[in-house]
Design a protein around this nucleic acid. Sequence first.
DNA 1: GTCTATATTCAGATAGAC
DNA 2: GTCTATCTGAATATAGAC
Lengths: 250, 250
Amino acid sequence: MPDNKLNSDTRERILDVAERQFMAHGYDATSMRMITGAAGVNLAAVNYHFGAKEELLREVFRRRLAWLNKERLIVLDALEQQASGEPLKPSQVLEAFFGTLLHIGEDEALGGMTFLRLLGRTLTDPSAFISAFFASEYAEVIERYKQALIRSLPDVPRAEIVWRLHFMLGAMSYAIAGTDILHVITGVEMSDYAGQEPGGKSEAMKLSQRLMPFLLGGLRAPLPNFSASSAQNGLLPAGAKREGEEVKKQ
Amino acid sequence: MPDNKLNSDTRERILDVAERQFMAHGYDATSMRMITGAAGVNLAAVNYHFGAKEELLREVFRRRLAWLNKERLIVLDALEQQASGEPLKPSQVLEAFFGTLLHIGEDEALGGMTFLRLLGRTLTDPSAFISAFFASEYAEVIERYKQALIRSLPDVPRAEIVWRLHFMLGAMSYAIAGTDILHVITGVEMSDYAGQEPGGKSEAMKLSQRLMPFLLGGLRAPLPNFSASSAQNGLLPAGAKREGEEVKKQ
DNA sequence: GTCTATATTCAGATAGAC
DNA sequence: GTCTATCTGAATATAGAC
């Protein structure tokens, strides 16, 4: 039985290609023929190895999230042990959570920017099976970090922290996922996302340096004022102040 | 010729239903049969009125974005005129931009939360025709607000402002779009998104009150420090500090 | 494990009667 | 403007030879 070295990793080749195609075109718009064609394997191979297309997507995420979830817990454990009972600083919690994620972007073996973009885009996908999958994959880690954040900000109400965790996830996912779209929307001035020359700072590093201060600033922002009076300092939607507007009949 | 009142607004009914379905299932996963079935109109009606499915999606957005874009410019114009040459405060710019958007969520005639969610989700859609459409629809408004932000923060480099505008768009879109998904991910503690009882604060208002301080905090956060030395204060991805890691072969 | 061939279903779109 | 009927293509998935 001689070497069929190339044949044996059909499974991995499919996963690599699927990851790229799902990122580029979205889950629905990526057909199994596109995947198997680009991977140079037979159409039936996907069903043989994964059963169905949905399972393939789940497996694409599983192999990356396994590392990410483990790493996030390891880093948080290490920080908490180091702090010996004291609450962590908010910046430490954010670094552990977002830094670990962005690290994936620097390492092709962990999925690189391709996977990060896929992750950011897929998180907003409305498909039921996808959101159910993410909910179960993320539950434990999010809960741990939520608790760490709550301890790190004793003066901020729990509910407010959860909102802000939500906002931070959004800012990050979008920043990563939106490469093409928001690039165009926000103009061409941004330093290039792509083209990570070895030697220079990686794409993920540049993103991290800008994102972290933003997130920290948002997380520690003054609390909203809920006191009775309505139009107190202008946190209302601007349009809400005008009245008697007519809605043109299109 | 007696009243065929109900027949004449087939076009609008299709748009209303399509908006809801695209939001709930995504563009690709929504078939024209689903839309026409739920709208109670004939399958051929979509092609008759809009030509093709892609055109239908564009029209769903056009009728809402027309109001939004106009309103955003009106509000910004009014603020700038009122300031008579002086730069606006960052909070004013944010209110004008995000408040106008969130106002849609309070008014069913403007699309309500259904449209806001659809918008948030669709912005990350990778389809080429969708991103091209948004780029052209948004170009003018984004440019105006970008300039207003740059004037309002004279000490912050232009590039940094563009990054942060990007992050803000992400935080907001995600917060809106992620109702189902991130609800689950971040736990059940958040005050309910849905169920806007008239009399109480609307969903959009509650979101606005939390989002605005967060965005403002992020926008005005201290700048990242780019000075030479690498590991200065820990803004690196946490995982990047460890070395010699092995990547298990799956 | 890999391939061909095919079953089955469903998509978007249109022709043409009314 | 609306409907029925249908064209055409492409999707996922599987049976069965090798």
